[in-house]
Amino acid sequence: DRYEFNINGVHFTIDDAEEELIKLIEELLKRGARAEEIEEVIRRWER
């Protein structure tokens, strides 16, 4: 599934997002994580 979200006006799209990654990102968003922090999480996840 495609997952899309915005952080401070920056648009992100993840194709074939796994449910666990989506939950992790949503938790980070609730905590007010910065875009750079979430980008790093996504990079690590994709390795």
Rank of each mutant, 00 (worst) to 15 (best):
F12E: 00
E26Q: 15
H11A: 10
K23T: 10
I7W: 04
G9K: 01
G9Y: 02
E39W: 13
W45T: 02
Y3A: 01
E4D: 06
I38E: 00
E37L: 07
H11W: 15
V41G: 02
K23Q: 14
E20T: 09
N6Q: 13
R34I: 12
T13G: 04
G9C: 02
K30H: 11
W45I: 01
D1P: 13
A33D: 03
G9Q: 03
A33W: 06
T13K: 06
H11V: 15
I42K: 02
I14H: 01
I22W: 05
T13Q: 09
A35H: 09
W45R: 01
L21V: 04
F5W: 04
R34K: 13
G32R: 04
I25A: 00
K23A: 13
G32N: 10
G9F: 03
N8K: 03
N8F: 04
E39I: 15
W45N: 02
F5G: 02
I25P: 00
E39R: 09
E37R: 04
N6F: 13
E37D: 10
L21M: 06
L28E: 06
A35R: 08
R47Q: 13
A17S: 06
D16R: 14
L24N: 09
F12K: 01
N8H: 08
E46M: 12
N8L: 05
D15K: 08
I38Y: 04
G9I: 02
G9N: 05
A35N: 06
A17D: 04
E37Q: 09
I25C: 03
L24E: 14
R44F: 14
K30Y: 15
E20L: 08
E18T: 12
Y3V: 03
W45M: 02
I38A: 04
R43Q: 10
V41L: 14
I7Q: 04
G9V: 02
A17M: 04
L24R: 09
E4K: 03
D15N: 11
R2I: 09
E18C: 06
D1I: 15
D1S: 15
I42D: 00
E19I: 12
A33Y: 06
E4P: 01
E27P: 05
G32V: 03
I7S: 05
R44E: 12
R43G: 05
R47F: 15
A33N: 04
F12I: 06
K30S: 11
R34H: 11
F12Q: 01
N6A: 09
I22K: 05
G9T: 03
R31Y: 15
V41N: 04
I38L: 07
G9M: 03
V41I: 10
D15I: 15
I38W: 01
L28C: 05
G32H: 08
D1Q: 14
E4Y: 03
V41W: 08
A35F: 11
E40D: 12
A33C: 06
L29G: 03
I7G: 01
D15Q: 09
N8Q: 09
A17Y: 04
V41F: 13
D16C: 13
F12R: 00
Y3F: 11
G9D: 07
L28Y: 12
L21W: 03
E40Y: 09
D1V: 15
R2Y: 07
E18D: 14
V10I: 12
R44P: 01
E36A: 11
L28F: 08
E27R: 14
L24Q: 14
I7P: 00
R31L: 12
I42Y: 05
R44H: 13
D15H: 12
E39A: 12
Y3M: 03
I22T: 03
N8S: 08
W45D: 01
R43N: 08
V10W: 07
A35G: 06
E27Y: 15
T13A: 13
A35I: 14
E37P: 00
I14T: 02
F12P: 00
L29I: 13
E27W: 15
E36N: 08
E26I: 14
E27A: 14
N8W: 04
E20Y: 06
K30N: 09
E19A: 09
G32M: 05
A33L: 04
V41Q: 07
W45H: 03
E46L: 13
E26R: 12
Y3C: 03
R2E: 03
R47G: 11
L28W: 05
R43A: 12
D16M: 11
R31W: 12
I42S: 01
G9W: 01
I14K: 01
E46C: 07
L29T: 04
G9S: 03
R34Y: 11
V10A: 06
I25W: 00
L29P: 00
G32T: 04
L29R: 07
E20S: 08
E27S: 14
F12L: 04
D1T: 14
I25V: 08
E4S: 05
E37C: 05
G32P: 04
K30Q: 12
F5L: 06
E20I: 05
E46W: 06
V41K: 04
L28H: 11
V41E: 11
F5T: 02
I42W: 04
A17C: 04
E46A: 08
I25G: 00
I38G: 00
Y3L: 04
